[in-house]
Amino acid sequence: MQFSFYIYLKKMKILLFGIAKDIVGNQFLEDASFKAKTVAELKQELIQKYPDFAKISSLAIAVDEEYASDEQQISADNEIAIIPPVSGG
């Protein structure tokens, strides 16, 4: 995994794209205060910390490069990414 440097800290690192990057003001989010154990909890925490996420029409989370369901478990060992509504093509 590319986060070997952070393993001892066990901070959750979240990749950000598109408007999510603008909302947070960075390319990724690394925060030891995230307590989320599931995708649904992570979405709630994100909206609490960055209320602008509530304005996005849909907020998907990818875990290890796959779209994740709300029930899916997450940890700092996963590659987590916020997927705002896609607009390719």
Partner: peptide
């Protein structure tokens, strides 16, 4: 093309 636009994580500004 329809499925790419719906599913593939790419964003345009």
């Amino acid at each position: 093309i329809d499925t790419l636009k719906e599913k593939v994580p790419i964003w345009k500004k």
